[in-house]
Design a binder for these strands. Structure first.
Lengths: 193, 193
DNA sequence: GAAAGTTTGGACCAATTGGTCCAAACAGTG
DNA sequence: CACTGTTTGGACCAATTGGTCCAAACTTTC
């Protein structure tokens, strides 16, 4: 009786995510979305609840496929210092390898919070707190292993590392080039020496 | 023969600047602007060239009154290490004292670059480079005075400090609170120790 | 192949977008 | 006090905004 959709919901969200990622929420119109996905309005509103819904799904997908994926991969590493170092080089690499220089959707959104609801605000805040916890955990492990001086304060240092990551993602959108981003990543790691 | 405007152009740009600062370019409409300034469309388009023009003026004004003002003030300080320290505490203070948590217009704009022209891009990039130069100059002076270890690399470290500042401004928009921002500012200064 | 029920295309909607236009109001000059 | 030239209010514009609606197309089940 039913009739299967001719498109894959996840594919659509993927495309939409890239739009929000690049141009932001307000500058992305429904016409942009139908154009980029090939879906007509009817199909779009039949499958999703509207622009807000599409944005939430995009943010969710980004968080899962980028932040979560990266973190769980790095948490599997044996050496915590190297995990932090890898994190930074991945950030720089993914920032530069994107020809559109979209940066990080979570960072971009945290500057756009004025146009979003409370749920989005909490979602973004939680994402950053998780990254801070990751850094903190790495620092503590590094201290136990004697790789990181015990004089380092795990929690404040972790937050400073998050701040550097955010800075890289913002400045990587067009202000700084590869050399500068590499330098920032290098210097940031002096915080755990 | 002429007739003086009943409003002060600079006052209008000031109000408009706050709108762009809080909501971003795309989410700010002309109606928002006429409402916030009290000007009717006719007067607005008689005095300015449109939304783009108003944005450029806002950015210019922000840059002059905030970035330039802060930098020239700090450049007058005798102790370069204290100049850097003061810079960070001012950033944190101004981030937290704003009830709207607008952050920094230059940072916000650098994430919005996709919707702006090349001129704006260069303007923003230049602003950040100037801040980096300020930090670099402080570090060199500090090294001459023996306050900063000569092992520190002035230029890369300066860029890392800029990255921390940017991070504070982004995370200060709603993700982190006072305690966290203070900690980041403290830790950032370990980069010059 | 008919019935069932979802998906699809695209016409359509009111509201809003950035921007234009112009008659009326106005202050200064002669 | 009339003339001059700018400023002002607000009606107006086409285009776009996010969103709705529904007949036609379609696959599956019976």
């Amino acid at each position: 009786m039913p009739w299967e959709k001719s498109f894959d919901e996840s594919d659509v969200v993927e495309r939409v995510m890239h739009l929000f990622w690049q141009k932001g929420y307000s500058a992305t119109s429904i016409s942009d979305i139908t154009e980029a996905t090939g879906l007509k309005r009817g199909s779009l509103y039949n499958a999703f609840d509207g622009k807000d819904d599409l944005f939430h799904r995009s943010l969710q997908k980004y968080d899962t496929e980028h932040r979560c994926a990266t973190l769980t991969q790095l948490e599997g590493m044996a050496d915590p210092v190297q995990a932090i170092s890898t994190f930074f080089s991945q950030i720089v690499k993914s920032t530069l390898s994107d020809p559109d220089r979209k940066g990080c959707l979570l960072v971009n959104t945290s500057i756009d919070l004025a146009v979003h609801d409370e749920h989005t605000k909490k979602f973004v805040a939680n994402a950053f707190k998780t990254i801070a916890q990751f850094f903190e955990s790495c620092i503590r492990k590094g201290q136990e292993l004697g790789e990181i001086p015990s004089s380092i304060q795990p929690r404040p240092t972790a937050k400073a590392l998050v701040s550097c990551v955010v800075g890289i993602r913002v400045l990587g959108r067009g202000v700084f080039g590869k050399a500068a981003l590499d330098q920032i990543a290098d210097q940031a790691q002096r915080l755990i020496q």
